[in-house]
Design a protein around this nucleic acid. Structure first.
Lengths: 203, 203, 203, 203
DNA sequence: AATGAATGAGACTTCATTCAT
DNA sequence: TATGAATGAAGTCTCATTCAT
């Protein structure tokens, strides 16, 4: 039984992985169920054995994968004892490394879920709000610790922070930037330096 | 003839406006040519009188509208004699006001063109690079004027700057933020304060 | 008025000529009314001023042109005082020369009318029967004059005779044969020799 | 599997047979894929399961069926030990009988392929040239055997021979002649007599 | 579990024809 | 006469989904 369960689970993962790859390449709407099946090496009828329909595949990707990422984020942000700015830098490095290891997944999240079909809007928004809430909380911790400027608006900061991530991923997706040629630390340092000290010259 | 020309031009604009509205609502792929026609109040056959196909409608929107926006950007950035930071703030206000007046258009640009169908990728990338180049140039002007910190990397700044715009528009598109309740100046001030002074507490 | 009539007549001919050219090139079904109009150098709406619909253009071509050819045939066959075989040879030369001067027209007759749309079947059949009847009559004249073998079946002969013409025109239409490189007299002589003397060796 | 293969093969034949019938009735251009499907008793989507598009159906008919006929021709012509004229008569009988048994197929070949859509022109021409080549070769054999008049031009003969077939089939297709009322042998004898002995009276 | 044949809604697009100017 | 904008029926083809095996 356990054997069966596992085999079935593996098949499902095969299909999900294939779906991520195909969605990343062609987008959700332009991907055919048969593309996914072919990529997974199964007959397309089998896809319907594991998923109710095409939408559910996307939803499952979101739930299984992205939610997982969000949890990692939360853990990283909440449990770490380092300074807030340090943790923000760590997360940038972490998220870029996730991309480097699984670009297709992040592409799907960026290109498909973020600008998401009606049927997923609510879930997506909730997910983002959780993430943004985590960052804001982190900022408040930093402010209490005297490490973050009191005048900083945590929400505005979260906007800039996620904006930096989003725009970077978009640039990569559009092939304007070659992510493999970009050391994660350098990028993170560059962003965090800017966010920390601003652009204004000090007299 | 001139009369005819004008009437024909008006019809074309009607269809383009309808297309922007429909694309903004449902996205390019989910929009039917018949949706656009109905919205424009014409028979769907007429759409093909003015455009070769659905793709060309999107391409025309991009060329006619976004290119126009980019020109406005360039003018604003290059011709203004105010301080760089002031001009960056002005542009934020300008772009948000464009959105307030024509949310659908910006939605289409954000949701469809940015994560663009293969057939437009190159044009879109070129368009963005022009815009980013403008911001970087502005930064350099500010650095020469002693107004912008020399250590600032203009490219990184452009990333943060556009990231802020993108993520804001996305938030609006996802209805997380109500843009009408958000005074343009306050938002711009908030973003520019952050970008100017950073989050780090000063000893 | 006469002036008007003539101008109107000329326009109509322009459109017919254009239609013949276009039908010959692309076939009736694949030809668009706008193709014909463009070829004739008029707006496509004007076509409907002169013809009720597309079918009527084809029908008019048939009636005006092919009927005319058939009359020429009849005259040639009936009025000529030369021997029957001579006259048959003359007609072959004549018909090939018609082709050389107006290939498109003959192509339309061969490719479109012969394998004709339902709406023209009857007229086409009648036209052919008239032509075949002419040939048969000619044969009988020849038999009475002792010039043509009595055993010859006039109908069978007409089949072979028209078959030779049809298959030649088809070969030209399919570009298997270059009609301009083929002297009309040689071709006619070759066919008539065959038809006159047969292939069987004489003991 | 073998069972599956066979069933699938049968379905494909069903659709091809339906297509032949429909094409013969209405012509390629006027035939709707849905007509074919309805005739075959399947949903029209299934047609696209077996064929890429409508053109491919016609091409398959040509390749599978006509090529087969040509092979039969070649065998008949090359392998037979009887006199050339005898073999030519046999082939006429054979081809008429093919028609009697499968009029639709021959109609399609005559009406659609012969005056063929651009996309098949080359294949069709090649096919015809093979057939004509066979006839010419047969003539030469007959000339060497002293059975055929040396003066006969094999190519001209082939023109007349195929012309007779084509014009007969056309006459049947146009319903000028009732093929079922026409004994194959009589027709073949009539044609061959004419072709053998000519029409000229012998002094 | 697995296959892929079968279905049919639905989308794009073409183009003959009408009609206002 | 002449134009070409406007209409919409009709056709091809795609593809998500179902289902028999």
């Amino acid at each position: 039984m356990a054997r069966q369960r596992k085999k079935s689970e593996i098949r499902k993962q095969q299909i999900l992985d294939a779906a991520i790859a195909v969605f990343a390449e062609k987008g959700f709407h332009s991907s055919r169920v048969s593309d996914i099946a072919r990529r997974a090496g199964v007959a397309y009828g089998l896809v319907y054995h594991y998923f109710d329909n095409k939408e559910e595949i996307l939803r499952t990707i979101f739930l299984e994968r992205w939610t997982f990422i969000l949890q990692v984020i939360e853990n990283l942000l909440n449990e770490d004892k380092r300074s807030a700015i340090d943790r923000l830098r760590s997360f940038l490095i972490f998220i870029i490394d996730v991309y480097k290891r699984n670009a297709a997944l992040v592409d799907v999240i960026m290109l498909e879920l973020l600008h998401s079909p009606e049927f997923m809007r609510e879930e997506v928004v909730r997910g983002f709000q959780r993430a943004a809430g985590g960052i804001e909380e982190l900022m408040r911790q930093g402010q209490e610790a005297g490490e973050i400027r009191k005048k900083t608006n945590p929400t505005t900061f979260a906007v800039l922070y996620f904006g930096a991530i989003e725009v970077t991923f978009n640039a990569v997706a559009l092939r304007v930037v070659d992510i493999d040629a970009m050391p994660s630390e350098d990028w993170a340092d560059s962003i965090m330096d800017q966010l920390s000290h601003g652009i204004a010259a000090r007299d």
